[in-house]
Design a protein around this nucleic acid. Structure first.
Lengths: 256, 256
DNA sequence: GCAAGGCTAG
DNA sequence: CTAGCCTTGC
């Protein structure tokens, strides 16, 4: 089973690129972030025509997440991250597909630091930990996947020294990520490539992509149940170079 | 010499359509209206690459006029319509090309009627008459061409009875147009096709184009000196059906 | 319905 | 830089 994540940065503006990549990559399951479209404006017709079922959680202008699956039933489990009924941002959707729990997330960016947006990010991570640690406790086959807006280590960003006070790289955030791994989650891409420089995001500004001034923000975490099934994985970096591309590239793994 | 007018409704958004039409129609002289681009954002490089010289009078967001010519020298005569130094709208540009005076105009729409915008339109027409009647008095070969925002007669609009109070069809405006013709200007398209229903504009709304609910707003007037040289002319109506088209279609004549 | 610009967020 | 939304004008 090939499982991928792609922050599309606008599902409607990105549709031609998304369809082109789906056709090329043929993933079985795809988690999308930053739909930037209200629930009714998700292009379900075109997604269906490409051979995918989908569930999604839209929001006007910002955020929005979706899970797509090809020839597999999608059983929706959660449409929001438990723990804060006041939180109305569409950043989380969870489903069972092919006997595997798929947790698709778009974690808050948190900038500027310090401030309420950073506090919201930290609180959101806390809720996430609670949710996903339950999955481990229940010994379920689970994948936590999406745009974490977290740069895990200095190797995951170009010129890390410039990012110390950025919410993507603040020590509170890196610590939280480490704690998640410590509970038993496997960072699939880093496990496959322990030493390589791997980025999943390049800013639209400053010619970041051509200078390869990127960062690794999009992650795929495997529960202990699944860790041994990891076959391969990677970043479809070339997609970032396509005309009208997102600022993120798709990330994928294959589980057997 | 083939001379055309085309209200592009945004020169930058319309560039692919404009270049496609230039390639297809091969006009020698083209007058453009509604550039909707400041002076510095006119795509002169692409226009040059298509084989055209150009002069233009840009304005941020609104209006804007240009004259293009292929293999012909453009001698700019006026960058605004004389008679009101306070008028800063970019609606007029005049040049001599191939020994012919080309007056390219984008006449004010004038809606809503009544009101200051309508008064501005009437005042603008008065200034125009003054300018172009001088050209006749001097017995010059001259073409007054562009988007007049005037529906000359009931035959020039779908369901004329609905338009009596619209600034495009108000009697003051129709009367002014008739007065212009009376001074000796020849409405080239109407002269070539005295009886046909000919439209040059179809609103983006209400499926106007597919219902052919249009109007004739773009005109080419010939001075007496040139009237006998009119060979042929027409409206490139099919261009209005192209993907991402303007709401106007190009209008052209051939003079010998 | 469409284009531009100004806004906000990244 | 880029997307979406809002406003303005037609």
């Amino acid at each position: 089973m090939k499982i991928a994540t792609y922050n599309v940065n606008g599902i409607n503006g990105r549709l031609p690129v998304l369809l082109r990549w789906l056709e090329e990559a043929q993933p079985d399951v795809v988690c999308l972030q930053e739909l930037k479209a209200p629930q009714q404006r998700f292009p379900i017709k075109e997604i269906n025509a490409a051979g995918y079922n989908a569930i999604w959680n839209g929001q006007k202008s910002w955020n929005g997440v979706a899970i797509l699956a090809k020839d597999l039933e999608i059983t929706e489990v959660q449409r929001s991250l438990p723990g804060d009924p006041e939180d109305i941002q569409s950043r989380y959707i969870e489903a069972i597909i092919n006997q595997t729990v798929i947790c698709c997330l778009y974690l808050p960016n948190g900038n500027p630091y310090p401030g309420p947006k950073f506090d919201y990010k930290i609180a959101w991570i806390k809720r996430l930990k609670k949710r996903i640690n339950q999955l481990i406790k229940m010994d379920l086959p689970a994948v936590v996947i999406g745009d974490f807006n977290i740069i895990p280590t200095a190797s995951d960003v170009y010129k890390s020294e410039r990012w110390e006070d950025n919410a993507l790289y603040r020590k509170e955030v890196k610590t939280a990520y480490k704690q998640i791994l410590k509970k038993g989650w496997t960072d699939a891409i880093r496990t496959l490539y322990p030493e390589e420089t791997i980025y999943t995001f390049w800013d639209y500004l400053y010619n970041s992509y051509s200078r390869n001034a990127g960062m690794r923000l999009d992650h795929i975490l495997l529960s202990p149940y699944l860790a041994g099934n990891l076959k391969s994985g990677g970043v479809d970096k070339h997609v970032r170079g396509w005309e009208k591309s997102s600022d993120h590239a798709p990330v994928w793994i294959i589980l057997d």
